[in-house]
């Protein structure tokens, strides 16, 4: 297994290089470094020297992919692409265009992100699984039908509506929670209640729809029928047999998102003013700050690949017949 993990990590390298190459190509198509400099330096009085200094301070005064002025190995290494992307592999993200150290920002901001994303993930999973179990228990009844209608309806509503509506009702109309904001201690709870509830609600419909199908399939298996024939109560069947067996495909299915929880949610975080990585990314996009976008793309690729790896490993744990070679 260790050799498998090692090999997979090795395979990740070309993928990460590909990702880097792709983002570089995209972003420098958009803006030449001169334009980035101008956007950063502001509106009034920009002189060419200032632009030059700005580029130099950030290492953007090199050619993009190939440096014709150098010989041999240096034609490739003395370029923006090489300089910037090699550093990513040792998690040296450099500074934002505004001069903030990106790694520090990431370290600082991932906790607020996690504070929202993790509860949303766990509570959401628990609630959806619980409801779908109940639904399976009452299968082929009016109850099931109405719950499923509600689920499809909830699933068909854009998350924007939940956020806008929730903020309007709970924050403005009823004064139950702060409209937005965040503090970095236990007081953060009151800021988190609403985003977490909204996150759970907006994921609820979709979750129940999937888990119900998984549990339904499980419920049609022979061992359940046997158990029922033995006279085991419906609840015991549900929670002693159905639940643990259905949980395996669900868990192996969701493992892939666990590492990416650090990245937070783009929209929720900006709406609620939570200083997490999601809002960091959005700010980067809006300001066309290439160094932020590049770092976040790289980071999420790494986490995604990690998620895939975890999925493979979780399969072997769930089903001992699977061997990773």
């Amino acid at each position: 297994m260790w050799s498998y993990i090692f090999r997979r990590s090795f395979y990740a390298l070309p993928i990460l290089i590909g990702v880097n190459f792709f983002t570089f190509a995209l972003f420098f198509l958009i803006n030449s470094p001169d334009q980035m400099a101008q956007a950063q330096l502001g509106i009034k009085h920009i002189s060419p020297e200032a632009v030059h200094e700005w580029k130099k301070a950030r290492g953007y005064d090199l050619p993009l992919f190939v440096n014709d002025e150098r010989n041999g190995f240096d034609t490739v290494t003395e370029t923006i692409f090489f300089e910037k992307s090699v550093r990513l592999f040792i998690f040296d993200f450099g500074k934002t265009d505004e001069g903030r150290v990106i790694l520090d920002e990431i370290k600082k901001r991932m906790w607020p992100s996690l504070a929202v994303a993790l509860p949303v993930f766990l509570v959401g999973l628990a609630v959806s699984i619980f409801v779908s179990l109940i639904v399976v228990m009452f299968r082929a009844s009016l109850f099931e039908f109405s719950v499923m209608v509600v689920c499809v309806a909830m699933f068909s509503i854009s998350s924007m509506f939940y956020i806008i509506g929730g903020q309007f009702l709970f924050g403005k109309l009823w004064s139950l929670v702060p409209v937005s904001g965040f503090v970095a201690d236990i007081g953060a709870l009151k800021f988190l209640v609403l985003p977490i509830i909204i996150g759970v609600i907006s994921g609820f419909g979709g979750g129940v729809r999937i888990y119900r199908i998984i549990f339904l399939e499980e419920a049609n298996k022979d061992y359940i029928r046997t158990a029922r024939a033995k006279g085991v109560s419906e609840l015991a069947i549900l929670f002693r047999h159905l639940f643990p067996n259905g949980l395996i495909p669900i868990l192996t299915g969701v493992v892939v998102v666990i590492p990416t929880l650090f990245l937070g949610s783009l929209v929720t975080e900006s709406f609620f003013g939570i200083p997490g990585l999601g809002s960091f990314t959005i700010d980067g996009i809006r300001a066309q700050d290439f160094s932020i976008v590049r770092s976040m793309v790289f980071l999420s690729s790494v986490l995604y690949i990690l998620g895939l790896l975890l999925t493979d490993i979780s399969y072997t744990i769930a089903d001992p017949r699977v061997r990773l070679t």
Binding site: G171, S175, L176, V177, P178, S180, G181, V183, K190
Partner: peptide, 21 residues
């Protein structure tokens, strides 16, 4: 419990929605 949480982090006068420490 929800209330307790809210009250717990409300300011000293019990405003649940105070965004300041």
């Amino acid at each position: 419990f929800l209330m307790a949480v809210s009250v717990g982090c409300a300011d000293k006068n019990g405003n649940w929605n105070n965004p300041h420490a």
